[in-house]
Design a protein around this nucleic acid. Sequence first.
DNA 1: TCGATTTTGTGAAAGGGTTCCCAAACTCTT
DNA 2: AAGAGTTTGGGAACCCTTTCACAAAATCGA
Lengths: 222, 222
Amino acid sequence: MTILRSPAGIPDATVARLPLYLRALDELAERGTDVCSSEHLATAAGVNSAIVRKDLSHLGSYGTRGVGYDVRFLAGHIAAVVGQTQPWPVVIVGAGHLGSALAAYQGFGARGVKVAAVVDADPELIGTTVGGHEVLSIDDLPGIVVRDEVSLGIIATPPAAAQSVADALVAAGISSILNFAPTALQVPAEVDLRQVDVAAELQILGYHAHRRQAATSKEVTA
Amino acid sequence: MTILRSPAGIPDATVARLPLYLRALDELAERGTDVCSSEHLATAAGVNSAIVRKDLSHLGSYGTRGVGYDVRFLAGHIAAVVGQTQPWPVVIVGAGHLGSALAAYQGFGARGVKVAAVVDADPELIGTTVGGHEVLSIDDLPGIVVRDEVSLGIIATPPAAAQSVADALVAAGISSILNFAPTALQVPAEVDLRQVDVAAELQILGYHAHRRQAATSKEVTA
DNA sequence: TCGATTTTGTGAAAGGGTTCCCAAACTCTT
DNA sequence: AAGAGTTTGGGAACCCTTTCACAAAATCGA
């Protein structure tokens, strides 16, 4: 008998949107909205309504035809699916500009994320405080991971250090890594890796801007 | 007669990977590698070789069978396609923790991005210096955009301010926006918008970690 | 109670993206 | 010069995602 029916195979694209729905639902709840349609939720999350319905149908049927979705109930359910019933402790590696900004970020709490520790390799930084967290040595990683049951690691170091940091995180038992360093990291298959590359995002925007410019100047020439 | 043949329709998925190839090629060039195979480039960029070949074929045929790709030549060509022959000037809106970290980020230069200005609405922050840039008033936006020919804007403000900042950017003539605030922004169709949501990334990782845990405890129970 | 209206849930179709696979084109060795 | 070994370019199959379209289920007013 299955008690917790965590729907086996939720498509990746859907999983990637669940946090958006959760955020949108929390906002709606705060504004006192009790029930919302897929159309309404779609606008709040910045997607279209067909995809909202399809996505939510992967989690099971929690809407009422002719009415919509119960905002709090749905939010609670999505939170359960993404494992956000308790905050996830994360460790931030790198206490530079970016690491500090992340450590100080006030928005994590409401999104189910808790900064367990900030570590760095630089002796000059160890012992200082960033965002209310004392910077610990990267050598303490294994202890921190065990003590705080950390399973998420954020790499906010220069690219040159990123691979060895990733190795250290994996060795310490962490199986999910969010990498801000612009490097292709090599990790074991069972480790889940996501990449945030700000410069790459800007270059993608640049490509489209470039094309727009070219199209415009063509028009002018023609 | 077409002189600059910017291949009309490059698939979005390919465009999103071009910056990775560019980064990988620059690294290879720095290490003195003159020629590389799709396999080699794939490893350096963290993707598989079939997709490298398919992606590059969208730009035209620049490889030599039995040999591979000329590293510098290919890098130059990709740079031209993404419009990175000159650095793109960007304006950062928000001089808080994140905005400061971005303003101070040393890695932009090598990736074809140049911080033209940092602006904020907070009178306490205006006039201070972050990452070598004096923080200007957000009211100066139109002037800055025109003077420095800025076409990329980065929103690094609290979510509550993000929409009005986006409106201000659009009004100032900016058509590409990278938004770090966790909000679904409403922009005109001709404006190109990309989103970076760190908490959402962590929640996606959390979902998979959660599933792994559930699977493991199931095994143990069984 | 019944018909009009709203909105979900989901098959089916359409659209992209990825992977497989191999002929064609090149180099190198003998 | 010919054969062995590499590696690209791209057709074709496959898979995933999105969009479309509508029956089913609910509400509401008369």
